[in-house]
Simulated scan of single mutants.
Amino acid sequence: MAETGAEPMIRAVDVVKSFTVRGREGRRRARTSLRAVDGVSFTVAPGEFVGYLGPNGAGKSTTIKMLTGILTASSGTLRVCGLDPSRRRTALARRIGVVFGQRTTLWWDLPLRDSLALVRRLYRVDAAAHRERLAELTALLELEPFLHTPVRQLSLGQRMRGDLAAALLHDPELLVLDEPTIGLDVVSKTTVRDFLERTNAERGTTILLTTHDLGDIERLCRRVLIIDRGRLAYDGGLDELRRTVDADRTLVVELAEPAPPIALGGIAAERVEGARQWLRVPRGENAAALVAALAQRHEVRDISLREAGIEDVLAGLYRGDHAYWCSGRPVAP
């Protein structure tokens, strides 16, 4: 849990990252400036597990690269573990762990155990502490069956568990994860999610997670930050997000026998499978009145109202001309 009054693990104030894009205007060469991150401000307290979301091209990866010192902010203030990431990159690396789901930090031709031994040397971890931490991570991540297997022969799920072990061997204060479950099967995802949940709860490790797998967010994160077109669009909890965005609900009706698609006023079935039909109910619609009208016209065996999933909520936030939202309040774009 976040420690009240503690120095933020991450502090971003009006952070901007601009890139120069070269092109042509007719026969002339031209340069334009593109703001990938545009005035983003937020804090992450020690012990928080925060999801960082946004559509492709929104600025998520650029933010992560600035937080880890790979990129330098064009303007604004950025502190991670109390350090300027771009100026104190080496010192910061000893205090954070980073996992990029599509890239590995392991040595391709070495057995996993040897890769982890090299990681120990890089971070100058004491031999006794390394043995203890490696034994703990081996048990939690179930690494024992493939510790002696070359990394290139590992499955994607095994390699991801190896990358998590490498990122946590030096017991960092902050773990930054970029798509850690991408491409994993259900069993591997469950293993990784259980491990991350336990790491945050038992060791108090602060975790910042970017992902397109919204199952990760719903299972793990108590707070989400949403970036859209380079700006922070939302900062708060998932339940608050559902209330903020007018995402439609779904009424699932099972009739006594198959029937043509139901149509009630402006609401019509969007999907029909035998006797079961799905109707999308706008947020402002009285669901009780709709159910009563259905019961009068049809013989109903079962009926259920499903609240919008996080996928529906985010889709509603991203699409169309919407106001920018931050902590439930609209702010000028």
Rank of each mutant, 00 (worst) to 15 (best):
E3F: 02
A12L: 14
A12Q: 06
V15Y: 02
K17P: 08
R22D: 02
R29Q: 07
S33R: 14
A36S: 13
D38Y: 00
V44W: 03
V44C: 06
A45L: 12
Y52D: 06
L53S: 06
G54M: 08
N56H: 10
G59T: 05
S61L: 10
K65Y: 05
K65L: 03
K65C: 01
L67H: 07
T68W: 01
G69W: 01
S74D: 10
S75E: 13
L78E: 05
R79A: 13
G82H: 12
D84E: 13
D84M: 09
S86M: 01
R87H: 09
R88W: 09
A91V: 14
V98T: 05
R103Y: 10
L106R: 09
P111S: 06
P111V: 09
R120F: 03
R120M: 05
L122T: 15
L122F: 15
L122G: 07
R124T: 14
A128R: 14
A129H: 05
R131I: 11
A135F: 08
L137C: 05
T138D: 08
L140I: 04
L147H: 08
P150N: 06
V151G: 05
R152Y: 05
R152I: 00
Q153A: 12
D163N: 15
L164Q: 11
A166P: 02
A166G: 02
A166L: 00
A167H: 02
A167N: 09
H170F: 09
D178N: 11
P180D: 10
T191D: 05
T191H: 14
R193D: 10
R198C: 03
T199F: 03
T206C: 04
I207G: 02
L209T: 06
E218S: 14
I227D: 01
A233R: 13
Y234R: 12
G236E: 07
G237I: 09
L241V: 02
V245D: 03
A247G: 02
A256T: 03
A256Y: 05
P258S: 03
L264Y: 08
L264C: 01
I267Q: 08
A269V: 13
E270K: 12
V272L: 04
G274N: 01
A275P: 08
A275C: 04
R276G: 03
Q277E: 03
V281T: 01
P282D: 01
E285D: 12
A288R: 08
L290P: 03
L294I: 06
R297I: 00
R301K: 09
I303L: 15
S304I: 02
E311Y: 04
V313H: 10
D321C: 09
H322F: 07
H322L: 15
S327A: 15
